[in-house]
Design a protein around this nucleic acid. Structure first.
Lengths: 228, 228
DNA sequence: CTCGTGCTTCGTCGCACGGCGAAGCATCCG
DNA sequence: CGGATGCTTCGCCGTGCGACGAAGCACGAG
C-alpha cells in the first residue's frame, strides 16, 4: 500500500534472518576488519563443522553480504561491500547503552583506534576526520567527502604520500564508541592505507585494534589530531 | 576469546532474529515515523491475527526495540528509541544499490522531505543541516551537535521560536536517499517540531512523507536551504 | 596416477518458532 | 451487573532450518 519505497518488510526480514544466527554473526564479525579468510578458518572461528559452515557461507553469499575469491583449492570469503561493514557498525550502535559506558580495560585499545572495514575508526579516526574538516582540508562535495588539493599537500608535507588519492571520494561513517563521524569510503581507505605504508599505524594481531607508532603519534599531533 | 568488545555474536544474532520475520519488520516499519499505534492496528498492518501479533510485540518489547504505553484498554507501541529508528534507516542504506538509483515517481515526495523517527530527513533535511553548518550556527561539540546562541537567534528571527531548544544536543543521522548526514537527536526533533508548529511543514497522510508549505519554502530559502 | 586436503552437496534428524483458535483478563459502556 | 471490546496467554500443529556424517569434487603434492 504505502511502503513500496526503499526496503520493504520482506527484504528487511531477509536481511535480518541472515543476521539471526550466531554462527553467521561470528563469521561476519570476524570479517568486519575487511580481511578475507578461507572457509575452514571461518568454520573454526564459529565453532561449527565444515559442512554447516559451507551452508552458512552460501546463504551469506546469496544474500549479498559476502564476496568470494577462489585461489587454488582455498576459497576466501570477505565482506561484499563497505556498506555491509557500515551496517554492522550501525547495528552495534543501536544496541550500545545511551549513557556512554566507559570502555572496559580490554577494550581501551579498540576504542582508541581500530579499523572499520578498511579505514581508521575509534577516537583517533574521529579526531583525524574532524582535524581535516577544521583545517579546511576536507569538504563535503556533491559526491561525498572530498580532500582538497592544499589538504593533500599538507598531508604529503607531513610524510603521508598520497598519489592519486585526492581524486577519491569519502563517506561519513558513524563510530559506535564515539558516536561521531569519521572518514570512510574509498578516500578513507586510501588515507588509512597510506598511514600503514608510512608506518604511522600498526595492527594489533588478535583483532581489529590498531596502534599508532611513536612517530605516527607525533605526526598526528602536528596535524592537530589530539587523543585526549 | 577476542570478541568481548561491543556487540558479540550472540547479541547481534538476537538483534537479527528480531528482524528476521516479515510480520515484525512490517510493524517496525509502520512505527518508523515515530508514531505510537495500538496492538490491533499493528496486527492488521502485518496481516496476522491478534494472538500472533501479541507474541511478536512481546518479543520486540523484550528485545528493547519497542516501548509500551498503556492507555485504558488500548496498548500503544512505539519504537523504544531514536537509535532503533537510526538502525532501520542504516539497514535500508546497506541494501540500497550503490549507483544511486533515481527514485520512482511515487517516491519523489518521500525523497524530498520525510520524517525519520521524529526529525526531518530527505533532501530538505540534509540541506537544512548543511545550511546550519555552513552558517556556523551548528557545531559538533563534545556531547553531540550543538545549536549556537546566534544560530538560535537567527532561526527565531526567521519565524521559528525555539524556547529551550539550544540546550539540547543533536546527533548525526545518515539519510538513505541522499547518503549524507542530517540532524537528528533531541535537537533535531525539537527543531522539526518547531517547524510543524510554525506551519513550515505539513504531514502527508498516507506515510512518512512531509511537504513544506509555501511560506515554509520561502523561509527555508531565506536560511540558505535550497532544494535543487 | 594416487593419495591427501579443502570445501561443497546430500540425506537425515531434531528443535525452535510462527500460525491459529479458544480461553482468560482487563477495561469501558449501558 | 452483564455484555462488548482490546489484548494476552495457552495449547496445538506444521514447517523451516541448523546440526552432523558421509559422499562427491576440485586441486596440489609426491
Amino acid at each position: 500500500m504505502n511502503d513500496d519505497a526503499a526496503l520493504n518488510r520482506y527484504q528487511l526480514a531477509e536481511l535480518g534472518s541472515l543476521l539471526a544466527e550466531p554462527a553467521r554473526t561470528a563469521m561476519l564479525l570476524a570479517l568486519a576488519d575487511g580481511t578475507a579468510r578461507p572457509a575452514g578458518e571461518l568454520a573454526q572461528l564459529a565453532g561449527i563443522g565444515a559442512a554447516t559452515a559451507s551452508a552458512h557461507l552460501r546463504r551469506l553469499l546469496d544474500g549479498g553480504l559476502l564476496a568470494l575469491h577462489v585461489q587454488g583449492r582455498h576459497r576466501y570469503y570477505r565482506l561484499a561491500d563497505e556498506r555491509v561493514a557500515a551496517m554492522l557498525e550501525s547495528l552495534t550502535l543501536a544496541r550500545a547503552p545511551l549513557p556512554c559506558a566507559l570502555p572496559k580495560k580490554g577494550d581501551a585499545q579498540l576504542q582508541r583506534a581500530r579499523c572499520c572495514y578498511r579505514h581508521l575508526a575509534g577516537t583517533l579516526g574521529v579526531a583525524f576526520c574532524s582535524a581535516l574538516l577544521q583545517h579546511g582540508w576536507l569538504r563535503t562535495g556533491s559526491r561525498g567527502l572530498q580532500l582538497l588539493p592544499h589538504g593533500a599537500d599538507a598531508l604529503a608535507a607531513s610524510g603521508l604520500p598520497l598519489a592519486g588519492v585526492p581524486a577519491l571520494y569519502g563517506r561519513s561513517c558513524l563510530d559506535w564508541t564515539e558516536r561521531r563521524m569519521h572518514l570512510g569510503g574509498p578516500l578513507g581507505v586510501a588515507l588509512t592505507t597510506a598511514m600503514f605504508d608510512a608506518g604511522w599505524l600498526r595492527r594489533l594481531p588478535p583483532g581489529r585494534a590498531l596502534r599508532p607508532s611513536a612517530d605516527g603519534l607525533r605526526r598526528f599531533g602536528l596535524l592537530g589530531v589530539r587523543l585526549d
